[in-house]
Design a protein around this nucleic acid. Structure first.
Lengths: 198, 198
DNA sequence: CGGCGACCATACGGTGTTGTATGGATGCAT
DNA sequence: ATGCATCCATACAACACCGTATGGTCGCCG
């Protein structure tokens, strides 16, 4: 009775051999879809069309999978930009807007949210998220510096820019992406404006 | 061997009878400490010094516990303020600052973060969080309205105020509370200032 | 073609979890 | 005091999960 009821063997092509990254990619999808507590061995095996025997050949244990998954996310899914060397103040504005737009539109923040929830109760993951946030924040701050703001102003405006997006993403949003993009434009116009605020 | 090794019966006084709220309170603590996946039946029973027999008298199932826990949080741990009727524009400023200070300092945001992580993969919880956010945001917007800002300005500044705090809380924060409070003061001074920004 | 290594299936033990069934203890009302 | 409702313990079934042990299959290389 309870044999292979949810098996759909012809969905995935008969991929001859599985690699370690296949497991990590599947684990990341499960993480983003149902959280870290759904990232289990036999579950991933079923999704990949194999059994546990395959898993324990590629990984030492379930804990090692999570550790690798943490690094996998941090190294492959947190790219901001690292080739912004030759940019002037004008490009900095448009680059900031493009970056924030991308965060809102892309599904990459789906990964971010899941990892952030994971990091709430896992200190190592929390550290990884912290490092990613610091890197991104430093990048945004650098953009504001190139716009001509001094260090204190750049610190203030970068934090307002970045943490607002984090908050809006973390909050349950029924707003459509168009709504968020429209409000992003309003924020951007204000946060980029050089007239002294106070 | 595996009998009652972690039982510490004299920690909790011999509370004669357990009530349903005792279970919910313990569940909320576990939720805040280790996430919703740690809210399990026998685990709570051990923490409360009883066995499952007690649980299944108070609750129909594990799912019902989570449903009750969701309502328990929404109704008992999301009070903002509802007695701000007779307030002028001056009190609105200090009330906003006090509210945001309280969010940063209190452990209430610990509950919020855990429920928010829960809501990422549970639609009913997501709706509950959404309603709470809408209520709070409407309250903050009302404060800005009482400060004299028009509707569009109040909408903008309330979202900036509220979602920033959500983001800063959701992000892994190594900053101390003093740091966050200091930065809160800077934000507050700016967001409350009436000089037109752009 | 023979053998070896990469990759996976199968089977099993052990634990943790939900849920049920049933009996016991305790207090309160009549 | 007797009976009943409340509250909990115990025992059990069923399942999911981790990890191991062992054998099997396939391809490649000499």
């Amino acid at each position: 009775m309870a044999g292979s009821l949810t098996r759909v063997p012809f969905l995935k092509p008969p991929q001859t051999k599985l690699t370690e990254e296949d497991w990590l990619a599947e684990a990341l999808q499960t993480l983003a879809a149902e959280g870290v507590s759904a990232v289990r061995v036999e579950r991933l095996a079923r999704s990949l069309g194999v059994t546990k025997g395959s898993f324990y050949w590629h990984f030492k244990s379930h804990g090692e999978l999570l550790a690798r998954l943490r690094d996998y996310w941090a190294s492959h899914h947190t790219v901001v930009v690292d080739a912004y060397e030759t940019q002037g103040p004008a490009e900095a504005e448009t680059m900031l807007l493009a970056l924030l737009r991308r965060i809102i539109l892309e599904d990459a923040n789906r990964y971010d949210a899941a990892v952030r929830a994971w990091g709430l109760f896992d200190s190592l993951t929390a550290e990884a998220v912290l490092r990613v946030d610091e890197t991104r924040l430093a990048f945004v701050k650098e953009l504001f510096l190139r716009m001509g703001f001094d260090r204190e102003e750049a610190e203030f405006r970068s934090r307002m820019s970045y943490y607002y997006v984090i908050g809006e993403t973390s909050a349950g949003i029924d707003r459509t992406s168009e709504d968020r993009l429209a409000f992003l434009d309003r924020r951007h116009r204000r946060l980029v404006d050089r007239t002294p605020i106070r």
